[in-house]
Design a protein around this nucleic acid. Structure first.
Lengths: 203, 203
DNA sequence: AATTGTAGTTAACGGTGTTAAGTCATGGGA
DNA sequence: TCCCATGACTTAACACCGTTAACTACAATT
């Protein structure tokens, strides 16, 4: 049985190496110039080898995203440990989301561009144990805390959560993608967005 | 001189026809499956013919976007004619932006995906007379009205404008691109976003 | 009638994601 | 120890893509 185990371990290590190289290639060349063939060249294997470890390009991208969400979740969980009132906790979490994604623009593009086919059917979203889902749960708990503490006035939790997220998503994606417009300082934007929204929903 | 004029007119008509067909192809097949070769097949010409009328694919996409912004601007200008207080005018304009783009998701994708190289350098943005720029000016005027009327508290106009826009952009793009998450009703989301933001910046 | 300009073409280049078929080393059972 | 089955990996190919260079055919000007 020793052989099969070693074999298995080697496969997993190789897969991890491919993923790591893919992330590096992404960070260096950007989404547009990334290709399976370039990745293959970099890991010094034929393009088809990748398909032994990933179903297709989308599958590879999906797993890059999961890695991204995993470390984002990690950051958020560190925040959770701090003793902050609900509204400050929510704001800190949102700021963390914005900053983290602005610091990893190419991965964010992967999430964005691959999104359409990335995960499965929408009605199954909450049943899948993805890093994305866990981040979402964390976000929702923070919002719930603001609602039950009475900091926010009574609002539909689900709509509020997705609205907050989509506003942050808009900020991040416009900063990342916009190349033809003179964008202001990201921190000032984030501050104004969160300040406005949190005030706007206050009781 | 009669010939050259007819020739010129024919060229313009043909170009318009290509553009129209491109928009149709886009609406039907979506951004991902759109290609110059398919467009060529549909207009019953060789792929290279398109290059006599458009520099490259991005140029074609850019002009589709300009068409989109042109009719959006038209909608906004109709709103401007109504006798509304600044805050209601701003809200109506924002709602119009959101609804219009949600009704034309594929064009919105073009704007989004082509954005990076679409227009030129950011510092030149305001000097170019593009439909995008005109829409932006309209938006800014509405915000200025809310600031000078005292409805909003004193805030940096430029940052406020781009923050408002990016929040709307986030709402639209998340609704258009998200396929793996059960999104709530777009109107309810738009209402909550605008309600929150406008309250949040109020004096 | 010869010349020039030009709309449109064909053929090709270099790239893409992906699949089918084949190679070849190696561990496990006889 | 020999055979063979497994499976990692490769080669070759398919069907696309955007784009360019070179060519053709035709009409207007000279």
């Amino acid at each position: 049985m020793g052989f099969k185990e070693r074999q298995q371990r080697h496969k997993e290590e190789f897969k991890a190496e491919i993923l790591e190289t893919a992330v590096a290639l992404f960070a260096e060349e950007g989404y547009a110039k990334f290709s399976m063939r370039k990745l293959a060249a970099r890991i010094k294997h034929s393009p088809t080898t990748i398909y032994l470890y990933f179903r297709d390009k989308d599958d590879l991208l999906l797993q890059i995203c999961e890695n991204l969400y995993a470390s984002l979740l990690h950051e958020m969980q560190e925040l959770r440990a701090l003793p902050l009132p609900p509204e400050q906790m929510l704001k800190a979490t949102c700021l963390s989301y914005i900053r983290y994604n602005l610091a990893n623009p190419e991965q964010y593009k992967v999430v964005f561009f691959s999104n359409p086919t990335l995960y499965g059917r929408p009605e199954d979203y909450f049943t899948r144990d993805t890093m994305s889902n866990r981040c979402w749960q964390n976000m929702c708990e923070n919002i719930d805390a603001c609602l039950t503490s009475g900091f926010f006035r009574p609002l539909d939790r689900d709509i509020l959560a997705i609205v907050l997220w989509s506003a942050m998503h808009g900020l991040v994606s416009s900063l990342i993608f916009t190349k033809d417009f003179p964008m202001p300082d990201p921190e000032a934007m984030a501050e104004m967005l969160l300040d406005g929204l949190l005030k706007g929903y206050r009781a």
